[in-house]
Design a protein around this nucleic acid. Sequence first.
DNA 1: TAGCTCGTTGGACAA
DNA 2: TTTGTCCAACGAGCT
Length: 458
Amino acid sequence: MQHQTALVWFRRTLRLDDNNSLLTALADSASVIPVFVLDPMILSHPDTGARRVAFLYNGLRALDAALRERGSYLVLRHGNPTEELGRLAEESGATALYYSQEYEPAGRARDARVCTTLRLESNACLDHLLSEPESVKTKTATPYTVFTPYFRVWQEQAFAVPRSTPERIPTPPGIATEPLPTGSTAFPSGELAALAQLTAFRHTTLSHYDTDREFPAEPGTSQLSAYLKFGMLSPRRALEATRQQPKSAGRDAWIRQLAWRDFYYQILWHFPHVATGCFRPPFDTIAWHNDEALFAAWQRGETGYPIVDAGMRQLTQTGWMHNRVRMIVASFLTKDLLCDWRLGESYFMQQLLDGDQAANNGGWQWAAGTGTDAQPYFRIFNPVSQGEKFDPEGVYVKRWCPELKPIPPKWVHKPWELSVNEQAAVHCVLGRDYPTRIVEHSEQRTRALALYKSLNCG
DNA sequence: TAGCTCGTTGGACAA
DNA sequence: TTTGTCCAACGAGCT
């Protein structure tokens, strides 16, 4: 044994299954102290949504329960991580620190401070991604910035086999811990819930994932994003479980999504400036209009465009939005309302249960056309045709905008084409029962094209 | 080095 | 109603 006592610092990776930091600490030490530090700097950050905090709290309770089944318990501290971990090491005589590698700029800076300040042997373990940012590179050893060539190399990698939960976790008794807070969430938290969802997904939705996931009214998505974000589910476990299923287009599409997750993490790792600015700096000069009233209408789901409003209401009410609809509302905010993508990125982080900086930032920059792919700038989503294509009967739209229920499917994505008399006849009058359009798409499309084009020329 | 191919998720318009 | 074509041109990544 290298150490009598080691600290296992949980941040994400809120699981015991396939947890390398925990398993490595156990291999190196006679006893371990699982600890989580609630950092007031993070809790008070504007992008830290209350919903995600509640999910975290319940996840900590689940983690503590799982630890107790194995003779351990979770030590909770509240404060600055460097100070709290230093204090805990002093109290317990711990000589080593184990944690999962972090990739976001703020987390990397925090970990660097902890490691340089504390006199502990520090060990970063690989738990959050399938493929590390440094392990997939071009032939000239530069990071990939286009997904397809990245994916070709990513696929060829031999991914580590997931490791099992340790049977016993020896922890010294009597370490002072603060009471675990409770949160209120509709979505079940913790790794048992995550593994149950993984099982359900691979046996039901997976084989048709490639097509079904496009239709927001259908339960065609994995529902695993929040678990992956908090590490309640190991990506290695997720990959292995799905690879055990028969080969299908659905399975391939899902594995591709796991690669996208790694891809955006490695973008954030190699190009940390994307956290605050455009991946392509010339786009930082776009003169966004940022009209506050339009932005507020978008947030409330009162733009007058049913597919946009349905998505925004789903987000605000549940903390989740279907991915197809995320693209539509993001395109609408940036291209139709001419608002800075960072406004949308921040609002998503406040609301989303699965809010993850790497994926969220990558998605927003993609939608805004400022990101890693060379999407032609004139590709602007049409909210009406997107609605008609992916929600043809209007089932999704009517679920979240019930005032549109009496509108026949043919008009449900463009109710303004009904005459005032027709609106009155079905008791859905625009401006009374449902908002009139705050902008006209074809006009705004022209303005957005001009805005982007002037940038390219200028 | 120079040349080649290709780029997650599209839309408008004409035929 | 469906299908094909153009939109404008750049830079990543490979050979």
